[in-house]
Nucleic acid binder design. Structure first.
Length: 277
DNA sequence: CGATCTACCTGATGGC
DNA sequence: TGCCATCAGGTAGATC
């Protein structure tokens, strides 16, 4: 479900809610959420540790512990983090419950069970989770110059949407925001990276930064299925500003065209055939 | 190196 | 009503 703006929205709230708190107990249900290490080990490394910071790397959340360990959380398609009280009823598909010594809980709800939690540390992370080290730059936290972006782009020979969604190039963009960014930039999803002019590259990068920034400002995108909610269960506002995503057969908000839905790499892709070239 | 497909899951939706 | 197919924000791994 969530892409960079949704994960960043949750990160900012976690910073306020869980930093400085000490973990009293951890409950993990099922075998899917904690799957790259024994559940017992995972629980032991979290128990009694204090959370000292919350970072985001692309779509991953990283909770720093005072033990030197780092807890990584990836929401994948349907994961939700929610703040709760011990007495609150347990929602269906609740797979992790972290209870703090001062009271209060952090819960992980994930119907499709693609989401994942694991604990590692800086010494073993490359072995435990090589995909973290392989992540590309973060367009929100570590924006690069458009010239550096042009270098990165020209080093690849692929289609624009594939390029934007490649987490090893730039981390955090998924299916929704790649479509919105390409529309903002006026570029077709299947254009080759090699075909772009200097002007188009600048425009693409400006759109990446602008769209992600705006989406964060509005608390991310909650679609009609209401799957994305923040720590407090609140929806994000950004979907109302979507120009193309899930707007097929509706008029383009920029030109006289009609938003069209296509299939690209087995994913839905939305674009305006009149203002994207 | 890049493209394409499969698999991992549950749930919502639409057609018949 | 029910049954079946299709689709959903992501990513890793196999194969060509």
């Amino acid at each position: 479900m969530p892409e960079l703006p949704e994960v960043e929205t949750v990160r900012r709230q976690l910073e306020r809610e869980v930093v400085g708190r000490k973990i009293k107990t951890v409950e993990v249900s099922g075998t899917r959420t904690v799957r790259r290490q024994p559940k017992k080990q995972f629980i032991a490394r979290l128990t009694d540790a204090k959370i000292t910071g919350v970072r985001r790397q692309g779509k991953y959340l990283a909770l720093n512990l005072d033990t030197g360990d780092i807890v990584y959380v990836h929401l994948r398609m349907s994961g939700q983090l929610r703040k709760a009280a011990a007495k609150d009823e347990k929602a269906k598909h609740t797979h992790v419950i972290v209870t703090f010594t001062q009271g209060g809980q952090l819960r992980f709800i994930d119907p499709r069970t693609f989401g994942e939690w694991f604990v590692t540390n800086p010494e073993t992370i490359d072995e435990d989770a090589p995909e973290i080290g392989a992540l590309g730059f973060d367009p929100l936290d570590e924006p690069i110059s458009w010239r550096a972006f042009a270098q990165v782009l020209m080093a690849r020979d692929t289609k624009l949407k594939t390029f934007l969604m490649d987490q090893t190039v730039m981390a955090g963009i998924g299916n929704i925001y790649s479509d919105e960014i390409l529309h903002e930039a006026g570029l077709m999803y299947d254009r080759s990276t090699r075909s772009l002019t200097t002007m188009e590259i600048r425009r693409l990068y400006r759109s990446v930064v602008e769209i992600l920034h705006d989406a964060v400002k509005h608390g991310g995108s909650t679609l009609d299925d209401e799957q994305f909610v923040d720590l407090a269960g609140k929806t994000g506002d950004y979907a109302q500003f979507h120009q193309v995503y899930a707007r097929d057969r509706q008029p383009c908000r920029r030109c006289r065209g009609t938003v069209t839905k296509a299939r690209f790499s087995q994913r839905s892709t939305y674009y305006c055939p009149d203002c994207q070239m």
